[in-house]
């Protein structure tokens, strides 16, 4: 099955050791971004090269891999990454969150609760939560060192002054174990509460920006907020039109040019599972044929 021209999981052993060392240091200092010598992968920067390198460093031949993009297993880039590991590592793949031992994700945390024994690998475009407030790495590194996060609070507070609420809806910054402010990758803030106290290991890989960071299991992760403006994990105020779920994150789909739209679960495995169990939504066919 595996492509013999390349090493197991594509990367050479020396590169994997370098990534593995970075991952362990990331776990030892939760939320801190560890620099690593990201390699040029056979897919473009910005398309998951960081996540792919972290996954490659973690995979064993016994793993069952799931890859999702926007919560879905069949989006083209998820398909492409899954194929890459089938080809280079020969691992089993699955669309089931429960069956997977390693899940690589872009922009979502699965709806089904994760468990011990699982690793969730996030693809991260811009790992530095302070980057859009201060573009210079030398400066943001110092801010993390000195725990100078005032700039972030000022930004969030300006949002409240202008809009009446914090106008950040995804990549919503969090504080890990009361120390490092961390970018959770561009997941919707709806997913933020799942970051903390999670039984699974969460690893974050940013290839182009050459950073790896981690949240160990059962770690305190708090979304930044203010006493008078507490964090709210919001989603579209609808139920899924296919499975009827009222607690899952929804994608909006435009179905005609007369304003018709429907809302469906972004987590395709979750939605399919509910439909198979007999749950129905507003636009479901009467019976599954």
């Amino acid at each position: 099955m595996t492509d013999q021209a390349y090493n197991f999981a594509y990367l050479d052993e020396q590169t994997k050791r370098m990534i593995r060392r970075a991952i362990l240091k990331g776990l030892a200092v939760p939320g801190y971004q560890v620099p690593f010598a990201s390699r040029e992968m056979p897919m473009p920067y910005g398309w998951g090269t960081g996540g792919v390198q972290v996954t490659a460093a973690c995979l064993t031949p016994e793993d069952v891999l799931k890859v999702i993009d926007q919560g879905a297993d069949d989006t083209t880039n998820a398909v492409s990454i899954r194929k890459f590991f089938q080809r280079t590592a020969g691992v089993r793949v699955t669309e089931s969150t429960g069956e997977a031992s390693v899940i690589q994700t872009r922009h979502r945390i699965p709806e089904a609760p994760l468990r011990e024994g699982q690793i969730l690998v996030y693809q991260v475009p811009i790992p530095e939560p302070l980057r859009f407030l201060e573009p210079r790495e030398a400066e943001t590194r110092k801010m993390h060192e000195l725990e100078e996060y005032g700039l972030m609070h000022v930004k969030l507070y300006e949002d409240i002054a202008r809009h009446g609420e914090i106008a950040t809806s995804y990549a919503y910054p969090v504080k890990v174990e009361g120390r490092y402010v961390m970018d959770p990758s561009p997941i919707p803030k709806f997913d933020n509460p799942k970051l903390g106290d999670c039984p699974a290991i969460q690893l974050f890989g940013a290839g182009r920006e050459q950073r790896i960071y981690a949240v160990p299991p059962y770690t305190q992760v708090v979304s930044l907020d203010f006493d008078d403006h507490p964090f709210v994990a919001s989603k579209a105020p609808h139920d899924c039109d296919l499975c009827g779920a009222d607690e899952s994150y929804l994608d909006e789909v435009i179905i005609d040019d007369a304003g018709g739209r429907m809302f469906v679960c972004s987590d395709t495995d979750f939605c399919a599972g509910r439909q198979a169990a007999g749950h129905r939504g507003r636009l479901s066919p009467a019976e599954v044929v």
């Binding site: 040029e40 473009p44 920067y45 910005g46 398309w47 090269t49 993009d69 926007q70 919560g71 989006t75 880039n77 872009r106 922009h107 979502r108 475009p125 809009h163 009446g164 609420e165 106008a167 809806s169 995804y170 990549a171 561009p186 997941i187 919707p188 803030k189 709806f190 182009r208 919001s234 989603k235 579209a236 994150y249 929804l250 994608d251 909006e252 972004s266």
Partner: peptide, 28 residues
């Protein structure tokens, strides 16, 4: 290579983030 990868990645699906922005703008 870094630049073109990151530039072109914005054509990948972003409907999860976009959805969260849509809701926010509608609410505001």
């Amino acid at each position: 290579i870094q630049a073109t990868g990151f530039l072109e990645h914005i054509k990948l699906p972003h409907y999860v983030d976009f959805q969260s922005e849509l809701e926010l703008v509608r609410r505001l």
